[in-house]
Nucleic acid binder design. Structure first.
Lengths: 197, 197
DNA sequence: GCCAAACTAGCACGATCGTGCTAGTTTGGT
DNA sequence: ACCAAACTAGCACGATCGTGCTAGTTTGGC
């Protein structure tokens, strides 16, 4: 048969072009033409891989979730619950370009969900995964909590980390980011410190 | 001269049409045509009031911020710092249709900011106003904090309330909202309880 | 060498977009 | 009564959009 069928590499390359367009011009500028131009390919080539625009956006969203998950899974575990928790939480807020891009894409997708219903299950899946991770962190920090309080604290941590992330993303004073880490470290200490409460 | 120049009422009517379109179809569906149709007027009439699309969106954003500010200012003060703080924070999360719509519009504007730079100062202004409100609440709950800790706690409260709001907005299980209020009440108690820390 | 399948490139169509522009329609002051 | 200003309504233009479609171009198995 013809050339190798390594569509995967091409798909990822196009998805990254989608992210760049979102990052630079906003989600409203994502079209098959702009993405193809950003990726340096013709529209026809793009549409050979992604026949419709929806499939392009959908794959880009899924890949973003997958990348974030992989990055989280790759963070080293030292065994110290507090240190590990802070290390993981640091990966959830936009401190580096890639995590920042991920969050910007995520936000854009949330805002575009009414127009593209296919994105809703992806957003919900990411939401639940992050909540589950927060629950895991809380459980490792304060293992003696009963189930209802664990759920409450997990939701609280989830809200705090997403709020911090959102503010870091749009803060007019982009210079200082220490407060964000400090804020998360305080929460970790609070959870670990008051074991039985 | 001709008819009365009560452009204001018309402008607000059109801005509310913008909000409905954002709410139903997403920010991407906001065009002079869709908004005019939603408001039940002709495109020409809309463009007599808002010559360009940017002015339409800009006014809608500003009006949303103003409405939210008014709603916050209208919350009754009982003198009990904790009770008042919870009452104000309740107005910042999407528990009722109007505050929910405000948040959806706000989120859409954040996502569209790269495409419409005129929205950036509006978003920053709203950000700073909300941060200032949080600082005010923290100061009334824990008046003995030094300045740096007050700033830290204000940012933390700001992040928490925005995170809770974001999650309430997109939570797959829209049924229970009690955890959100409980979460904010816990934070208020924590701030008021550990006065000097 | 060769050919079918994978891939690239691009044209064309209808729809929608923002906006400049002009023509009707109301309406309040005189 | 009347007219100028405020307002309503809509046409037209170029740009961009998603997508159906058809040609070229590569390329691996025979």
């Amino acid at each position: 048969m013809p050339r190798r069928i390594d569509t995967h590499e091409r798909k990822e390359q196009l998805a990254e072009a989608v992210w760049r367009v979102i990052r630079d011009k906003g989600i409203g500028a994502v079209s098959v033409r702009t993405v193809a131009a950003e990726a340096g390919v013709a529209v026809g080539s793009l549409r050979h891989v992604f026949p419709t625009r929806t499939e392009l956006v959908e794959f880009s969203a899924r890949l973003m979730v997958r990348r974030a998950t992989e990055r989280l899974a790759a963070t080293a575990r030292t065994g110290d619950a507090r240190r590990d928790a802070v290390a993981i939480l640091r990966h959830l807020i936009p401190l580096e370009p890639d995590s920042r891009a991920e969050l910007e894409v995520n936000l854009a997708l949330i805002a575009e969900a009414p127009a593209t219903p296919e994105l809703v299950p992806i957003r919900d899946e990411a939401y639940r995964a992050l909540l589950g991770l927060c629950a895991h962190l809380v459980a490792s920090l304060a293992p003696d909590l009963d189930e209802t309080r664990l759920a409450t604290e997990a939701r609280r941590l989830h809200a705090l980390v997403d709020g911090v992330a959102l503010h870091l993303l749009t803060d007019p004073d982009t210079a200082d980011t220490d407060w964000a880490v400090e804020c998360l470290r305080d929460e970790v200490d609070r959870l670990a410190g008051s074991r039985p409460r």
